[in-house]
Amino acid sequence: MTPAPASLVLVRHGESVGNVAATHAERTQALVVDVATRDADTPLSERGREQAKALGAWLADLPAGEVPEVVWCSPYVRTQQTARIALETAGLDLPVRLDERLRDRELGVLDRLTWRGVLEHHPAEAERRRHLGKMYHRPPGGESWADVALRLRAALRDLQERDAGRRVLVVVHDAVVMLLRYVLEELTEDELMTIVRGSSVHNASVTRLDRVDGAWRLAAFDDVAHLAELDAPITEHEGTEDTHG
């Protein structure tokens, strides 16, 4: 049997300034999301920092047998900030492994465009996306969801070998959480898209998979109970092209 971690706790980063800008763009029917930084450098908003602290408080309250032993993290600023703030709040001194294969999906020519912006500036791509679907549409210069799944499979092989038997906290992005479920649970495209249509992955939410009898079993998905005191929003900008996820 291939060695594997005992459990994976998948966390989406806290709210970023990109999330705020994307929501504003959607509400104002703008064509472009007003974010000055490149995606990798987009930081948490103040609310996102509070969400990361709430995540840290949740980690601090976990039973000893459930506390993560190591962290794998996307190298993007918003994910690193989320991990650092959460660990500091929890009083945990854990190794943090940055891996570029855990980065957010790259959107190429569609980066920072709302769905209205895509229709306006790249109508042919909007039609290609409609025809091919979310899983296989690759915008020029960007990635499809299938492309992201391929690099996640490679990252998971290294993670499983390096941290076999450990409880691992993985701090990543919206689509990456969904695609980690796709890979680990061996979902079909239709099963994944049913989940995607039914629920987004909320900022600072917790998804947990446990290794049971040689297979991954979903124990929690998109749990935001630890954010209740912040009155955390449970809807996310759906009209943008996965911007700053």
Results as ranks from 00 to 15, higher is better:
4 A>S: 14
62 L>I: 10
106 E>S: 05
56 G>W: 00
120 E>N: 07
35 V>Q: 15
153 R>P: 00
141 G>F: 05
72 W>C: 00
158 D>K: 12
199 S>C: 14
9 V>Y: 00
204 A>Y: 01
244 H>I: 06
183 V>H: 07
43 P>I: 09
199 S>P: 08
82 T>G: 08
234 I>T: 15
2 T>F: 07
160 Q>R: 15
83 A>N: 03
108 G>L: 11
123 P>R: 04
182 Y>H: 10
109 V>W: 12
245 G>Y: 05
201 V>K: 02
148 V>E: 02
147 D>I: 13
204 A>R: 01
153 R>Y: 05
170 V>Q: 00
84 R>M: 11
46 E>V: 11
76 Y>E: 06
82 T>D: 01
5 P>D: 01
80 Q>T: 13
124 A>Y: 13
197 R>M: 06
28 T>E: 10
180 L>S: 11
65 G>P: 01
13 H>P: 03
78 R>N: 04
234 I>Y: 13
163 D>R: 07
159 L>N: 02
100 E>Y: 05
6 A>M: 10
213 D>C: 10
74 S>G: 03
219 A>P: 03
147 D>V: 13
175 A>P: 08
67 V>A: 06
173 H>P: 14
79 T>Q: 05
44 L>A: 04
172 V>C: 14
118 V>T: 11
42 T>S: 03
35 V>L: 14
166 R>A: 09
126 A>K: 06
12 R>N: 10
138 R>P: 07
159 L>A: 08
226 H>E: 05
62 L>N: 03
157 R>P: 01
152 L>W: 12
103 R>M: 15
48 G>E: 04
222 D>F: 13
95 P>G: 04
73 C>F: 03
191 E>K: 14
238 E>L: 13
66 E>F: 01
14 G>T: 08
217 R>S: 07
47 R>P: 02
115 W>C: 07
23 T>W: 10
33 V>L: 09
184 L>I: 15
107 L>T: 13
59 L>F: 07
166 R>S: 09
99 D>T: 08
235 T>F: 02
37 T>S: 06
205 S>V: 12
150 L>I: 14
245 G>S: 13
84 R>I: 04
111 D>L: 06
213 D>K: 10
72 W>K: 00
69 E>C: 08
159 L>M: 14
33 V>G: 01
54 A>M: 05
220 A>T: 15
239 G>S: 08
118 V>A: 04
178 M>S: 07
245 G>R: 12
97 R>T: 11
36 A>R: 14
167 R>W: 02
123 P>F: 05
8 L>T: 00
42 T>P: 01
165 G>A: 07
81 Q>A: 07
37 T>W: 15
55 L>N: 02
219 A>G: 06
217 R>Q: 08
118 V>H: 02
232 A>K: 01
75 P>D: 10
70 V>I: 14
